[in-house]
């Protein structure tokens, strides 16, 4: 099953979305005041692209999202890339098994991604010399991140669908009629 070709508008939207979502992670203090959780929607974005676009777009979004996020963070550069890439790559390979048009499936995929990506990033950081702060409150933060991404994932799917419908060429509809195979009835034929 081939992924739809991405036009310039969709590609531009994706780059803009990655850039803005990386910046948004450092802003919006309401959630941070309550739970010390940033508005990190990178995993949801990678899910949408992995299930709706090609492998090239998935890898680009995952790598770009990881690098932009790391550039604003105290994490070593490249720490967020493997987690986002593995998520996108796995979802893209298994997309024919996923009910990607169903809202509940989108929610659960977003939720899973929102929990799995920080965990994988923590595992990556564990392999480096870094000492990330994780404690008794970390599961609550991970769950909040999962819920955030679970809610954002269906919304992002809708936006991408809308872009696809608005800016992509419509598929050429051809009828099965072929004039060279037309049955020409003789004079004797009389309709009842």
């Amino acid at each position: 099953m081939g992924a739809p070709a991405m036009n310039r508008f969709t590609a531009g939207f994706l780059v803009l979305a990655i850039w803005l979502s990386a910046f948004a992670q450092t802003q919006f203090s309401t959630l941070r005041d309550l739970l010390s959780v940033p508005l990190a929607l990178g995993p949801a974005l990678v899910c949408c692209v992995a299930l709706g676009q090609g492998l090239g777009a998935t890898v680009t979004v995952a790598v770009l999202s990881g690098l932009l996020s790391d550039s604003l963070s105290a994490s070593p550069l490249g720490a967020a890339v493997p987690a986002l890439f593995l998520l996108g790559f796995t979802l893209h390979l298994q997309r024919h098994l996923i009910l990607r048009d169903q809202r509940f499936a989108q929610f659960w995929i977003g939720l899973g991604a929102g929990v799995a990506v920080p965990l994988l990033t923590l595992a990556t950081l564990g392999l480096t010399r870094s000492q990330p702060a994780a404690g008794a409150f970390t599961p609550v933060q991970l769950l909040t991140l999962g819920l955030l991404n679970g809610i954002a994932c269906p919304a992002l799917f809708r936006v991408l669908d809308l872009l696809h419908r608005t800016f992509d060429y419509r598929p050429l509809t051809s009828s099965s009629f072929r004039p060279d195979r037309e049955t020409v009835r003789g004079r004797q034929f009389r309709p009842r």
Binding site: S36, P38, T138
Partner: peptide, 11 residues
């Protein structure tokens, strides 16, 4: 002007 984008650093 900005906060830490992850939950495991405090910067």
């Amino acid at each position: 002007v900005g906060r830490e984008p992850t939950t495991w650093w405090r910067t």
